[in-house]
Each structure stands twice: as structure tokens, then as C-alpha cells.
């Protein structure tokens, strides 16, 4: 592993963010390609470790990964600068697009395009919820608590962050089947 200059990695991060469509999960593969394969700045295991930590914390996954990669390679200054690199290209892209929408947003074709795209977005969110539950939700009791949480929040209009924290509290205190299963595996 050779130690690269911060400026160079900053430019790499800007480039990745400027061409990474589809959000964080579109950006991470590009980061891996650049950092691990092409430039050999990080080892595969270091990079996956950074992603794993980034995923366990709140916030956009691409931002969190940049912070961990920056810390690992250059310390706190690196974390700030690399995050800046990831944020700046979309920032200006969105400002330009907002401007274009102001001019052309009323066209019939554009409005119909958005009608179709809206449905795709809803589908993507539902699919994400399905994948997230498949990956993380492994016991019935948590599933029941989540279901009750969604119903109560929907009908009682509880603030979402409050609902999130209350649900987390109940999932934490209710004993998990998963724990029992993992003990059983250990015993074998």
C-alpha cells in the first residue's frame, strides 16, 4: 500500500460522486474499484471494514464511508476533505437541475415522465424495506413489534423519530429467539 496525497484522493472522491448514479449503493462499488483495485490505496479488508462501520451508523452511507476512509488514510482533516469531495458535485448538479426544472418543469412530457417515475420510487422504497427486513429481521417478536409500530404511527400520527425510538426500545427489551438459536449453535 502506497500512501497517496490527500488532494489526489479528494479528486478521486469528487469524480466518483459525480458519476455515481443511484445513491450510496451506486457509489460504493466505484469507491472499491478506485481505492482497492486501481490505485491500491486500501486493502480489501480495510475497505469492507470501513463500509461495515459506516452501515451501522446513521446517515448517508457514502458520507459515512468517506469519513471512515478519510480517518483511516489521513486522520480527521482527511475525513472532512473527502466528505467535501463527495458532497460538492451533487450539490452543484442539483442546483443546476432545480434551475432547469423551473424553466421546463411545466411541459406535459416532463410531468408525465414524473408520474411514471414516482411509481418507480415507491416500488424502490418498498423493495428496500423488504430487503432490509430479510437481512436484519430474524425473529418473530421483532417483526410483530415493527408491525404494531407501523400501524400505531400511521393511525395515531405519532412523530416518526419518536416512534422509531420507542420501537427500538421495545425490540431491545424483548428477549430474542435469535439469541436462543445462536446459543444452540454454540453448544454444538
Amino acid at each position: 500500500m502506497e500512501k497517496p496525497s490527500l488532494i489526489k484522493v479528494f479528486l478521486i472522491f469528487m469524480k466518483i460522486s459525480a458519476i455515481g448514479f443511484g445513491g450510496g449503493y451506486g457509489i460504493l462499488p466505484l469507491m472499491r474499484e478506485e481505492l482497492v483495485e486501481k490505485r491500491k490505496i486500501m486493502s480489501t479488508s480495510d475497505f469492507y471494514h470501513a463500509i461495515a462501520q459506516a452501515q451501522s451508523l446513521p446517515g448517508p452511507i457514502a458520507v459515512n464511508t468517506s469519513i471512515f476512509v478519510g480517518l483511516k488514510l489521513f486522520g480527521i482533516l482527511g475525513a472532512v476533505i473527502l466528505t467535501f469531495g463527495v458532497v460538492v458535485p451533487p450539490f452543484f448538479a442539483i442546483l443546476i437541475i432545480a434551475n432547469l426544472i423551473d424553466r421546463f418543469g411545466n411541459l406535459e412530457v416532463f410531468r408525465n415522465f414524473l408520474k411514471g417515475a414516482r411509481i418507480a420510487i415507491v416500488v424502490i422504497i418498498i423493495d428496500f424495506a423488504v430487503r432490509l427486513s430479510r437481512r436484519n429481521l430474524r425473529d418473530i417478536s421483532s417483526a410483530v413489534i415493527i408491525f404494531i409500530g407501523v400501524l400505531l404511527t400511521f393511525f395515531l400520527k405519532i412523530p416518526v423519530i419518536l416512534a422509531f425510538l420507542i420501537t427500538a426500545f421495545f425490540i431491545y427489551i424483548v428477549p430474542h429467539k435469535k439469541d436462543i438459536k445462536s446459543i444452540r449453535i454454540d453448544e454444538k
Partner: peptide, 9 residues
């Protein structure tokens, strides 16, 4: 979703 970059940003 159609613009590059993290969606939340």
C-alpha cells in the same frame, strides 16, 4: 435518483 451522488444529499 436520476442525479449522481448520495440520495439524502
Amino acid at each position: 435518483q436520476m442525479t449522481p451522488g448520495p440520495i439524502a444529499i
